[in-house]
Design a protein around this nucleic acid. Structure first.
Lengths: 142, 142
DNA sequence: CTAGATGCAAACAGTTTGCGTCACT
DNA sequence: AGTGACGCAAACTGTTTGCATCTAG
């Protein structure tokens, strides 16, 4: 079972115990699409571990984010959102209805940073959000 | 008094009553630097209107954001943050200590969007966050 | 065996809402 | 005069914490 060994490795590399809850939370996120909230991840995980608690989901999501096993989407709307698209990409965010669409990286010209302005900052990734009105909201407002 | 007439105009153009509270909240934000939270804006506004309420600050910040009189920063850390830098710019965000620095637009090469991938989306602005470790956190972690 | 993980419930922080009163226009 | 804004307090939502119990290593 390659999936399981991969998860155990991910944990061991980081000094984390490979618990059942941890694995279910991780697999649950990996199986989702879009930008799920902790609450949604909790609901899905409940189906596999009826006794799992929301606090455990929160604790582990933070651990996964801190250790770089998961990424968070930058734009909030009241709750944390987890990135499930593992390909590099950015977001189209409707400022009216708050929906988020993925923009494949190729839709944006590659970005170059002026190293001098970074002043010792160690860049890990660049998050780009294109803000505006989606088709539906644009027509509704006009 | 040019400042006042500008604010009244801004309100009237949007069909908003130009109340004293509204003006103080707006001027308070304009006088701040960085990315103030509603709580901080409230504290500053209290000095000019001791009876102002936090709810009024929240209600008006949302109105200002909706009407495009103010902008919000994309990365959250538990509370909304208001943009006070009116020049186009982006952010350097430390994923460890959560501090935010402004990056003048010139530090990034201009970005071009592939129109085809936008599918009717009406772009208003592009928010870019460069995520990583700041100098202090990078040395502390190594 | 022991450090660290879990589950529960209570606590919190930030934000929103309902409603009676007040103030722009 | 009438619509919309204010201030207060209570309600909510999302998240975190403390602690007793359990489990992976």
């Amino acid at each position: 079972m390659p999936g399981e060994s991969t998860f155990r490795e991910l944990c061991h590399e980081r000094g984390l115990a490979a618990t059942h809850q941890r694995q279910v939370i991780y697999e649950t996120v990996m199986a989702l699409r879009d930008h799920p909230s902790p609450e949604l991840i909790y609901e899905k995980a409940l189906r596999r571990i009826p006794s799992i608690s929301l606090a455990t989901v929160y604790k582990n999501l933070h651990i996964f984010l801190d250790r770089g096993m998961l990424q968070e989407v930058g734009l909030h709307q009241g709750s944390i959102r987890i990135e499930t698209n593992r390909k590099p990409h950015h977001h189209l965010v409707c400022t009216n209805c708050k929906k988020i669409w993925d923009l494949h990286e190729a839709a944006l010209q590659p970005l170059q940073l002026n190293k001098k302005s970074l002043q010792g900052f160690k860049v890990k990734r660049i998050s780009i959000d294109v803000l505006g009105l989606c088709g539906d909201c644009a027509t509704a407002q006009s």
